[in-house]
Simulated assay, not measured.
Amino acid sequence: MPSPAIDDYLKTIYHHTEWQTERITPSQLAAELGLAPSSVTEMVRKLAAQGLVTHRPYGPIALTEAGEQRAAAIIRRHRLIETWLVGEFGYAWDEVHDEAEVLEHAISDRLLEGIDERLGRPRFDPHGDAIPDAEGRVHREPFVLLGQAPAGHVGRVLRVSDRDPDLLRAVEAAGVAVGATVTVTDAGSIRVDGADVPLPEAATAAVWLST
């Protein structure tokens, strides 16, 4: 049955391994959701009983195939809505997350399909995150985190994390957009069109480049 609480858990677990490989631990999940560890432990037990996650005591949590399908479906809704708000209503990319959190549970499948069709079946949202298709499939290029890219690396900006609206605004103010080709200089600094671009230190852990 639909449950925003369950969907939030599944989305968070799904998000954790989109751009890195380490599985999420119960303590990390509790921190991400802002909940007490005891509450998370109880919910994870319920999710495991429903066949949505696999988990052993004190170990990491992984989505089952059913859990990944459900997570991909709600993430598809969220990211299509974000793309729709930016493209059709003039929202900035730092303004859409909270709106999408509300709308993802409210719109019908018919409206979602209409949004997808109107937008031309986009594969990525405004932040560069992949939009799962109706079957839950996604396409991602090989990537490297800005802070881990060596000096001289040239790549396109694939993704900017939407976790911090202030950082999104700072990246936008610097003239860096998803799809831009940049050259890494040193310590996570970049050059765009021959000009050095200052970025906040936090950008090194929030910007992903193509390899």
Results as ranks from 00 to 15, higher is better:
residue 66 A to N: 15
residue 46 K to E: 15
residue 147 G to T: 04
residue 64 T to G: 12
residue 66 A to V: 14
residue 82 E to S: 14
residue 191 R to L: 10
residue 27 S to A: 15
residue 202 A to I: 09
residue 13 I to A: 04
residue 145 L to V: 10
residue 146 L to M: 03
residue 56 R to I: 12
residue 168 L to D: 09
residue 91 Y to A: 13
residue 15 H to I: 09
residue 89 F to V: 07
residue 6 I to K: 11
residue 106 A to T: 12
residue 32 E to W: 02
residue 95 E to Y: 14
residue 188 G to N: 04
residue 50 Q to A: 15
residue 158 L to Q: 04
residue 122 P to R: 07
residue 60 P to L: 07
residue 135 E to C: 00
residue 199 L to T: 02
residue 11 K to D: 15
residue 97 H to E: 13
residue 198 P to A: 11
residue 100 A to Y: 08
residue 59 G to C: 04
residue 126 P to K: 04
residue 201 E to P: 02
residue 167 L to D: 06
residue 96 V to I: 15
residue 2 P to M: 07
residue 93 W to L: 15
residue 207 V to F: 02
residue 149 A to S: 05
residue 190 I to N: 01
residue 146 L to A: 04
residue 88 E to Y: 04
residue 20 Q to W: 09
residue 154 V to D: 11
residue 53 V to A: 12
residue 176 V to R: 02
residue 177 A to Y: 13
residue 119 L to K: 05
residue 2 P to F: 09
residue 156 R to Q: 10
residue 195 A to L: 09
residue 75 I to W: 03
residue 9 Y to V: 13
residue 142 P to Y: 00
residue 184 V to F: 03
residue 5 A to P: 00
residue 15 H to M: 10
residue 153 H to K: 03
residue 109 D to M: 00
residue 106 A to Y: 07
residue 174 A to C: 01
residue 137 R to M: 06
residue 189 S to V: 01
residue 168 L to M: 14
residue 28 Q to Y: 08
residue 68 E to S: 06
residue 71 A to N: 09
residue 209 L to Y: 00
residue 167 L to R: 05
residue 63 L to I: 08
residue 203 A to F: 02
residue 110 R to F: 03
residue 105 H to S: 13
residue 161 S to Y: 04
residue 16 H to S: 12
residue 132 P to L: 01
residue 72 A to R: 07
residue 209 L to D: 00
residue 104 E to G: 10
residue 129 D to R: 13
residue 12 T to E: 15
residue 9 Y to P: 14
residue 189 S to M: 06
residue 153 H to S: 04
residue 100 A to L: 05
residue 112 L to K: 09
residue 115 I to E: 05
residue 1 M to G: 15
residue 197 V to M: 11
residue 114 G to V: 01
residue 157 V to W: 08
